[in-house]
């Protein structure tokens, strides 16, 4: 065997190993999907999606409280994080060399790494304690803080990718700076900003820890943001550790819905960013 042949064989072996490992690395996700579908899909029906939990022992009932709860929590988080995140992202992209930009970029990156339960504690101190009881608002604040760095980062990154010439074209037409940002830069980066927001939603929709002592959970339907509220991950947690078999089934069903929600957000995100 010549040196040349040996090299070809080595190259083939490594290529096969890499392919194999790549395929294996998709297994965990496929397994999760398989078990959730197997145990959860049979639970899901119209009643499961549109009715409230029934008392233990009674058959039927659904998880409407948790679906509405998650929707409200995510909405509060969006209202808090998107405006701040986009504005901060614009600042970081436009004044990237300043000291303030340097520090806030660092702080935002650190915030992204803070364990979510710690952020739950912060929301507890800031919102739950002053108000005196657990609330949807406090849960939304916690989720909003988790989402903030994601929105900042994606806005900054996308604005930096927009060619400098585009901004100059607008300024050279006598368009003031703030209008240039609002009418040229933001529209040009909109798909990227949207991608960041959707990724953020996908991230916070499944967060459980920061909700344990903020949103707290609620077996009844609630629209009051100053009262405790249910959420899909909280309901899954409560039901999964309960001693009742039909609650376990409901936890599978709720997991199934959560996974599909996050999965479809990811697919939409991918579609938007490949279209760009």
């Amino acid at each position: 065997m010549t040196k040349y042949e040996l090299r070809i064989i080595k190259s083939k072996v490594i290529s096969v190993i890499l392919t194999f490992i790549t395929i294996v690395s998709t297994f965990p996700f496929l397994l999760v999907l398989y078990f959730i579908m197997k145990n959860g899909i049979s639970v899901i029906n119209w009643e499961f999606l549109t009715s409230l939990p029934k008392p233990v022992g009674e058959p039927g009932g659904g998880i409407l409280n948790a679906i509405i709860g998650t929707a409200i929590l995510v909405t509060i988080a969006l209202i808090l994080s998107v405006p701040f995140g986009i504005l901060a992202g614009i600042y970081l992209a436009e004044r990237s060399e300043t000291k303030i930009a340097f520090i806030s970029r660092l702080v935002s990156e650190i915030l992204q790494g803070v364990p979510s339960i710690v952020i739950g504690i912060i929301a507890y101190l800031w919102v739950v304690k002053p108000i005196g009881y657990f609330s949807a608002l406090s849960g939304g604040v916690a989720l909003g803080i988790i989402m903030l760095p994601l929105v900042i980062k994606s806005t900054e990154e996308i604005l930096k990718l927009i060619p400098h010439e585009l901004k100059e074209a607008s300024l050279a037409l006598g368009v003031p700076y703030y209008k240039t940002i609002l009418k040229v830069m933001i529209p040009a980066g909109l798909s990227g900003i949207l991608t960041g927001v959707l990724t953020g939603i996908a991230r916070i929709a499944g967060e459980t820890a920061p909700l344990l002592f903020t949103a707290f959970g609620n077996p009844f339907l609630s629209f009051n943001i100053l009262k405790p509220i249910s959420a899909l991950p909280l309901l899954i947690f409560t039901y999964a550790i309960s001693p009742y078999e039909n609650w376990w089934a409901k936890a599978w069903g709720a997991s199934c819905i959560l996974v599909f929600f996050v999965l479809s957000l990811n697919i939409i995100t991918r579609l938007i960013s490949t279209r760009r």
Partner: peptide, 11 residues
Amino acid sequence: MVFQKPNPFPT
């Protein structure tokens, strides 16, 4: 002003 690289507004 007209620039080196054509830069129509993409949106």
